[in-house]
Each structure stands twice: as structure tokens, then as C-alpha cells.
Design a protein around this nucleic acid. Sequence first.
DNA 1: TCACCTTCTTGACACATATCAAAGAGGTGA
DNA 2: TCACCTCTTTGATATGTGTCAAGAAGGTGA
Lengths: 132, 132
Amino acid sequence: MPKTLPLLEDVSPICCGALGNSATLDLADAIALAVRLKALADPVRLQLLAYLLAQPNQEACTCDLAPVVKLSEPTVSHHLKKLQASGILTKERHGMSVHYRVVPEAIHAIARTLDTGDWAQPVLNLGISSQS
Amino acid sequence: MPKTLPLLEDVSPICCGALGNSATLDLADAIALAVRLKALADPVRLQLLAYLLAQPNQEACTCDLAPVVKLSEPTVSHHLKKLQASGILTKERHGMSVHYRVVPEAIHAIARTLDTGDWAQPVLNLGISSQS
DNA sequence: TCACCTTCTTGACACATATCAAAGAGGTGA
DNA sequence: TCACCTCTTTGATATGTGTCAAGAAGGTGA
């Protein structure tokens, strides 16, 4: 304890309102929302989503997506897995290839959550599965 | 070149539609949106925002905010700086203390961008200043 | 000027994440 | 079975990020 000042817990601040510590967002809820936002908060993943949204069925396979973002297929696979784990994409095998499809409700749910400020809401029960 | 297979650029995929590479989201726009989402995509910053939104004027000073998230003041200052740099908060000196205030339009703009899928839009001209 | 308060910056550290090459896994078709 | 295709996992590396202690910066009041 090298300081002579009291610890943070021992003294109440003088400066402002000293508002009654009304924590309005539980840490668990904050983490749940942050995980979904973090899945979106990457330029590569946004580009992948934009491309998928522009497709007729909002779906495409990995080999089509890699050229879109000009990255290696393992890297794209990593990003797709992350989006799928957050419930923003679903995946489905079609013969040799795997089709990823956008779940628009997932994106809308995140947008609505941000818009209304109801951040303690469950956002939408998106399963948050690890992978298929 | 240890592989005998042709490079990705040399061969067109056979699997799916071989859709004409219609890049729908420019990399610069993707980065711009990702920066804003990344500012939101942190549990601590979400808790800080939720607390600020619950205050009468949607503002508070640093010394009030540190206890809310139970972190040191330098750490909270770092998070507030990040939110301010993304245009989500504004800062203002009041005597000794500094008041941070939410810019609701900034959050609404991000939500609307996600909701409409117009990700190449400028989101809102939030200045994205480094700091004051 | 001095003591004090609030806030920010710096430096250091641990941890998370983006990326690729290489190899493995799962499927198709001869 | 074998060759081939698509996709994923693993291992390694580089970069980014959250955190704190220590000290500096900016302001107040005596």
C-alpha cells in the first residue's frame, strides 16, 4: 500500500451527485449483448454479411465468399464460424459445399435492442450454439 | 510453391453459382461501421452507457462511473475516451470534474444502419474526433 | 504558492483475435 | 478403392485490447 490516500471503497466522491449506484445493466446481460455486437464489429464479417444479404436467398458457400473479402478460406471459415456461433448465420451442407445463410431477425433484434435501450432484454433466443 | 494445385486466382470455383463478385460493401465503409460497433461491443462500455442513459440528463462524471463498473479510474477513462472517439459520448468540463453525456442519435444511427442494411451509408456524421 | 481533488497519460503485462500454411475431415464420382 | 473437391481444424505468429500502478496534467481554494 504505497499511497497515503484512502482506497476507493473507503471514501465517497465529493464531486457530483453521488447517485445511488443504481446499476441498470447486469454484467451477464452486458456480456451477452457485447458478444453479439463483437461478432458484427469486424470489417471482414460486415462485408461477408453485406454480400450474403445481396444474394437471392441471402446465402452462399465458403468458396464464393473467400474471393469477396480476398482472404484465405481458413480465415473466412473462422469468421463464418463466429457469425454462426452468434446466431447471425445458419449453415447447411449441400453435397460437397456448405451454404451459409443470414438470419435477418438476429440482426434486427440487435438493432432493436440498441434502439430501445432495453439492454437487459434477452435480445432474441438465438441459440448461441458453438457449431453444428 | 509447395502445392501442385493451381492458385485460387487461377481457377474459378465449380461448386455454386459463381456469382459475379458483386462486392456490396466497400472495405472503407465496412471499417467505418466496424469501428462504431467495436466501441459498443464491450460489456464495460455497455454498462457505462446503460448507467448514463438512466441518469436525468444522461450524463455523469468519471468518479461516479468508476464504482458502477468496479474498475479503476484510468481504465474507465480509457473506455470513456473510446466511446467519445466514436461519437457516442460527449465530454465537458464542469470545474474540477468532467461530465460525459450520451449522444442518443449516435446509437440510434447505428441501430438504424443495422436494421436497414444500408451499411455503405455514412451512419451519421459523428465527427469521430480523437478527443477534445 | 501550496495542498488537494479529479482526470488523463504512460508503461507494462496478460489475454484475445485475425491471419495464414499445413494437414485433416467429410463428401462426390469414377 | 482412389483421386478430387470443399471446408474446417491446428499450430504459429503478429497485432489489438483491457487492465492497473505510477505519475502527470488541469483545476479549486486557502
